[in-house]
Design a protein around this nucleic acid. Sequence first.
DNA 1: CGACTATATATCGACCGTCGAAGTATGGAA
DNA 2: TTCCATACTTCGACGGTCGATATATAGTCG
Lengths: 106, 106
Amino acid sequence: MIGMTEATYFILVALMEEPLHGYGIIKRARTQSLGEVDLAVGTLYSALDRLSEAGWVRLDREETVNGRPRRYYRITDDGARAVRAQAARLQRAAALVLRPSGVTSA
Amino acid sequence: MIGMTEATYFILVALMEEPLHGYGIIKRARTQSLGEVDLAVGTLYSALDRLSEAGWVRLDREETVNGRPRRYYRITDDGARAVRAQAARLQRAAALVLRPSGVTSA
DNA sequence: CGACTATATATCGACCGTCGAAGTATGGAA
DNA sequence: TTCCATACTTCGACGGTCGATATATAGTCG
């Protein structure tokens, strides 16, 4: 299986418009998926670590609000490329069912 | 995260045209995904067990070839419904990147 | 005023699904 | 005769998701 997980995909998609902090990513993913994707915090932060290591996301800036850190993440060019490639794969996968073309029963 | 895994999706898609046996599913998934999806045998058979239990797939018939069983699986109505719903989800997910509509930067 | 919810991050163990390998078996090609 | 394709079973390792727990503040509702 090539392709990234659904969680990874929605995290990257959430970051495409602008840099967001962790909780903001969770909310944006929820909205963009029409409520279908509800990222667990554990999933988010471990995914963010993996994505940072992979160079698909990087720390944009760090603010301090109420004495607590708020880390904003930004998608990188590599990340943007990866998410576009994944979107194309998803489209092709969906098309197999929604626009069947190679019908065998000639 | 709602949605099924990619492996599950491609197994169900492979079965949409006609019943297939395990190895046939692997080959069909490979072809339909243009070589991108290469199901591991371990993945396939455990997924088939799960899908049978869920009622999305059922044993169609069992042949004996060269003294070895060859089990053909058939997708059920529930399975077909599930795969159509998943295809719609994949399409929507892909559209977020390929046809962005809710652009914030007015 | 007290309970609850939303905002916000960190961490950890449990669990689920995927992967790859080993085992078993046959037929055909090199 | 060695190797590859076909074909199913099982099992351990690994990767990623989930939910809980901890911590902290501000706002809402009764």
